[in-house]
Amino acid sequence: MTTVSMTVNGKKVSADVAPNTLLVQFIRENLRLTGTHVGCDTSQCGACTVHVNGDSVKSCTMLALQAEGAEVKTIEGLAANGELHPMQAAFKENHGLQCGFCTPGMIMSAVDLVKRNPNPSEETIRTELEGNICRCTGYHNIVKSVKSAAENMGG
């Protein structure tokens, strides 16, 4: 066991973990933050997407120990003062989800996408979301949600 320390959603956390513990396992099982989902577990579906030092990463393809000292943000850390993040609000408003399984990863990727492309075209949104798979919506309302959120976020 090795001790790992990081900041998750603004809170300092520390735990003894086996070196083969994935970041997503650490988040879900040690911290009990189960908003981050495991979909495919093979780095394809993006349901496990979280931010590490501000960048979206697939937390099933990163060891907890690689996040030593990092700032990690999960879907639980997006809302502030009881208000949904504009991206969350836009997904709700535009019906950007059906079953909701992919949604936490989709939203975390979308927040990173808008950070890098403040005024994204539909094509940019679709390209940038290549790492997130949704089996319900056909993506149409997801793209609409991201576009609307980008506008609300002052893009």
């Binding site: 997407t49 979206s56 697939k58 990727s109 990173d112 996408l113 979301l129 290549e130 790492g131």
Partner: peptide, 9 residues
Amino acid sequence: IGDAQVRNR
């Protein structure tokens, strides 16, 4: 290369 998350790592 890959997708956005892969390119970040």
